[in-house]
Nucleic acid binder design. Structure first.
Length: 350
DNA sequence: CGTCTTTGACCTGCGC
DNA sequence: GCGCAGGTCAAAGACG
């Protein structure tokens, strides 16, 4: 039976070897945010998960972050960046946030398994499953032989003195654990919204204590609780790259990028796993909120809406809608122009 | 009083 | 099967 499941997982994985996206963005003088998918980095070795930080592509050769990676981060990336989802074990080195990755994680398999299920059930069933999953978690004793479902993850590194970055959502801390090979504990947060099972892990890099690694797991199924409609409200003019935002502005800028990345991640993930739900959600949640922040980030040029997942409180004046992104969004001003070129995939689609 | 954090215990998965 | 490490639970306390 387990064998069967394994096989099923593997086959599903082959079909859907997606959402293993990692990206490395170099530090700038103030802060940086380094999004990546760490799904497969953990529980693979004695290395801490920070040690395992790496770059990994979607199976899609035109990874949404490819250009971003190359045009922004290439100079600081010393480890080879795999083009496809292949297992690459590159020893992690200090001051080098690249290391090993694997696309055949059990988590991915589990997530893909979920997706496979979702393909065969309607939306109501999906909701029921969500409830059931929650119930099962609370029940004791837990069923054995039932692998814990785990959503694909999306993580980024942020240079910040604040552990818990403000991403606009409300989180409840439900645990803290000491991490092997790291002097810093890892904190576990859960989205406080009912029925939203999104989790977040926050830990500091053992290599560089100033770097906070935030890992999101799952997809919000509700709008951002403190997101004013029709505004994205922050850092309209400061370049993310030149570090000229100054003081907290720099950090906020990085948070903005985190949000943009996470927006994209969630959008992609939902598109792949719950297209029906996404279509439904887009209407109430994403309407008139923002346009795609960056064309190259989007692997889908057909749908221009993104969930309003991130927001920076301190840069959210009430009347900031006039600063809302246009065309490519704020990143158009922040990122090099070559990054806005269409990906080969997109051009193919044309 | 409601919400959140802390923290020890327990559960789970994985490697040996 | 055992041990380890990561992840989660839930009671207790803090805080506004």
């Amino acid at each position: 039976m387990e064998e069967e499941n394994k096989k099923k997982d593997e086959s599903t994985e082959n079909r859907f070897s997606y959402h293993h996206e990692m990206i490395i963005i170099p530090e700038n003088s103030f802060s940086s945010s380094i999004p990546f998918d760490i799904s497969s980095c953990e529980q693979k070795s004695s290395l801490g998960f920070i040690d395992m930080l790496s770059v990994q592509d979607f199976s899609n050769p035109c990874s949404i972050f490819d250009d971003l990676l190359q045009s922004i981060t290439a100079p600081l990336i010393t480890a080879p960046v795999p083009e496809y989802s292949e297992v690459v074990n590159t020893p992690a080195t200090p001051n080098n946030y690249s290391s090993s990755i694997s696309s055949s994680s059990t988590e991915a398999a589990a997530a893909n398994d979920d997706q496979k299920k979702n393909e065969t059930v309607d939306e109501e069933t999906v909701e029921e499953e969500l409830d059931q999953e929650k119930t099962n978690k609370q029940l004791k004793p837990k069923k054995k032989n039932q692998k814990r479902k785990r959503e694909p993850r999306f993580a980024f590194m942020t240079k910040s003195e604040i552990d818990n970055l403000d991403d606009g959502f409300r989180w409840r801390k439900y645990g803290q654990k000491a991490v092997k090979n790291s002097p810093f504990p890892r904190s576990y947060y859960r989205c406080t919204s009912t029925a939203c099972g999104v989790k977040k892990r926050v830990e500091r890099s053992s290599e560089d204590p100033s770097i906070v690694v935030t890992t999101y797991e799952g997809t919000h199924i509700h709008p951002c609780p403190i997101m004013p409609r029709g505004t994205f409200g922050f850092m309209p003019e400061t370049s993310i790259l030149d570090g000229s935002g100054g003081g907290s502005g720099g950090a906020s800028t990085s948070h903005f990028v985190i949000r943009q990345m996470f927006n994209q991640y969630q959008y992609q993930h939902q598109q792949l796993t719950q297209p029906n739900i996404l279509q439904q959600q887009q209407q109430p949640y994403f309407h008139n909120l923002l346009t795609p922040p960056l064309s190259l980030i989007s692997t889908s040029t057909t749908n221009p809406t993104f969930p309003p997942l991130f927001r920076e409180r301190r840069f959210c004046p009430s009347a900031s809608s006039s600063l809302a992104p246009r065309d490519h969004g704020l990143l158009q001003d922040m990122l090099p122009s070559q990054m806005f070129k269409a990906t080969p995939k997109e051009e193919e689609d044309k």
